[in-house]
Nucleic acid binder design. Structure first.
Lengths: 208, 208
DNA sequence: AGAGCATGCCCAAGAAAATTGACCATGAGG
DNA sequence: CCTCATGGTCAATTTTCTTGGGCATGCTCT
């Protein structure tokens, strides 16, 4: 019985496996043979789908961040919650995922940490990709202000702050055995609460 | 030089060709050999992609309506126009497409007319699919009312009316050589204008 | 009823594409 | 200078796809 191969499916499987391996072994120390092996295919086959190792990283990031963005964008426009609730829900969900310490988001953060260790600046790709999330937050903030859910504030700065909070949380979760303190759900909830009463909403958490 | 075949692309091409042929020859009188020929492939190959003739029709409708819905849904949530303008823009665009008398939408309408002639009720599929557009209009109306752009009205009925107007326009365009009168852009603009002043917005155009 | 035609299905040969074992180049480390 | 691991390539093999032809069935029209 010849099994039919779904190339999209396999492509995605390669990316997911690669992300896991990158997260576990580091980008430099992980080799394509291992990734191929864990996918149940041969190494040359990977080159059928991706140009080189770097492209695998690029598309893995794209997959995870894209899926994340779509998930939250869909949620954001398919509920009748007020805009502040939508923002809060998204933040909580991202933190939950990070805290679960498994799954795509955690792997992504691990890979970023490994990259940092190795002195590579591939992380620019991740930052470019998460920029879409910032746009989503900006839009929600703007709509919320128009609607009266959220008091007028500097939308750009607040959106940046939220992303910064989320990033720190993710990174701290990744360093869980090093740090004791961790940004809690309560903290971010407080931060968001802040905008209901503070008309500017700036400089709460300064950029490092 | 071995040309690489993109199966998704070919699948779509079959559907588009089929739609054109169905529109031209009618569903019954169009045969798979012709569709295959116009696609530059052989008849057995079609069976590689679709179960039978009916499935081709089903997916062709799904493709066109899906693309249409995505286009307008994306537009609707990616602009800062007031909600009345968004609805109007979408309606104008649909009518423009129908009036251009070529392209997917026109083909779809032609196919529906052919189906009607042949006494088949495959059109149920189309109606089920366009129901998504109704949902979009309902949502825009609801948001517009909340925002104050649009005066309170029975959202369900108004959305149905708009769809009915669009459908009639499309059908009339298809019968352009039979009918002299045609629902104009001005008419639909007037209809939409009506809701700004009329709190109910019902029974303007009674269901036939 | 019978001719004509289209669908749906099958087959086997040939065409095209995917897969892989083996190979090469490079660079790190002893 | 040798060894070894790894990224990247390639030709040959394997697998899958395509197609011309054929066949039974069922529909339509005369």
């Amino acid at each position: 019985m010849p099994k039919k191969i779904d190339h999209e499916e396999r492509k995605e499987k390669i990316l997911q496996t690669a992300l896991k391996v990158f997260a576990r072994e580091g980008y430099r120390d992980s080799n394509l043979s291992l990734i191929a092996q864990e996918c149940g295919i041969s190494r040359p086959t990977i080159y059928q789908y991706f140009k080189d190792k770097e492209e695998i990283y690029y598309y893995a990031v794209k997959l995870v961040t894209g899926r994340m963005f779509n998930k939250y964008a869909t949620f954001a426009w398919s509920t009748d919650d007020n805009y502040m609730s939508r923002i809060t829900s998204i933040c909580i969900d991202i933190m939950d995922n990070a805290a679960q310490n498994e799954g795509e988001l955690t792997s992504l953060v691990d890979v970023m940490l490994q990259m940092k260790k190795e002195g590579r600046d591939f992380n620019e790709i991740v930052l470019r990709r998460t920029a879409k999330l910032t746009i989503l937050f900006k839009r929600l903030l703007r709509m919320g202000i128009k609607q009266g859910d959220i008091i007028a504030c500097d939308v750009n700065k607040v959106a940046d702050h939220i992303l910064l909070l989320l990033e720190s949380t993710c990174f701290q979760v990744a360093f869980l055995d090093t740090f004791d303190m961790i940004l809690s759900k309560e903290l971010i909830a407080n931060y968001l609460e802040f905008f209901k009463t503070n008309p500017l909403g700036n400089d709460v958490i300064p950029r490092s």
